[in-house]
Design a protein around this nucleic acid. Sequence first.
DNA 1: AAATGTTGTAAGTATTGACATTACAATTAA
DNA 2: TTAATTGTAATGTCAATACTTACAACATTT
Lengths: 137, 137
Amino acid sequence: MKFSSRLPIAVHTLLVIEVFKGQYKITSDFIAGSVGVNPVIIRNILIQLKTANLVEVAAGIGGATLKKSPQEITLLDIFHAVEADESLFHIHEHPNPDCLVGRNINSILYTHFDKIKKTVEQELNSITLQSLLEQVK
Amino acid sequence: MKFSSRLPIAVHTLLVIEVFKGQYKITSDFIAGSVGVNPVIIRNILIQLKTANLVEVAAGIGGATLKKSPQEITLLDIFHAVEADESLFHIHEHPNPDCLVGRNINSILYTHFDKIKKTVEQELNSITLQSLLEQVK
DNA sequence: AAATGTTGTAAGTATTGACATTACAATTAA
DNA sequence: TTAATTGTAATGTCAATACTTACAACATTT
């Protein structure tokens, strides 16, 4: 079980946008310099954040800005924006339907895993970008 | 963010051991038939479960049995047994230490992610193998 | 209108991890 | 000894992730 690195990068991106707004033009190159990855990675993440209505990106001239206030953006919003795959858990497998266990395992595990997922989402939702900003300073 | 399929397979394995004990000899082949994977996968997972003191495997003659009662085994025990990588979250990255955000991002995210991890572990710990057994029947 | 800087996007490569498969020595009971 | 099974190594395959290069589209500035 593991988060991809997209959530951390997206959070980092949003923090940079807000911390340095006004001072610098926040281009994908600028963000990439702080995060330490290729600018294309940042552009792709910006597209996802834009689709989720969290940021605005100026095509041509360049520069990204937040579209909501930091109080209104939670880690869950960011998580949903960049982790397209909602399936958190492997329920895959091809269990044997002729076996009592194989027949039931997936629905049983799914029930429990889904509950855990909801708990995680609840926690992510309780953390705002604003609180992270305050921790940065 | 995603579980590997090792936890589901390990749970499936333990359930098969307990459900069919006495009726059949529970070999890696037998378990593999119910799970729907290669027997070697099961053997490797059995080794991990054995190391965690959850099962006993008879070398040579074959057959696996539980080493604790189903009430004493929780999903967290199984999780720890098979998910060696405890790092749940990507804190990797190489953020720029010369940037205010880059300098602080990892410790901030780590704090929050660690709290979420503890919550997940708490939930996993509340689910016993016994309760899963009851759901199978 | 041209030059400049940036975004949007595609394509190719590399790396990693998970899982599958084959093979065989070691082990144990019959 | 024979037969069945485990323990373990080696190899192959596949998907996901990330890195990089490249360039057309776009908007501002000159």
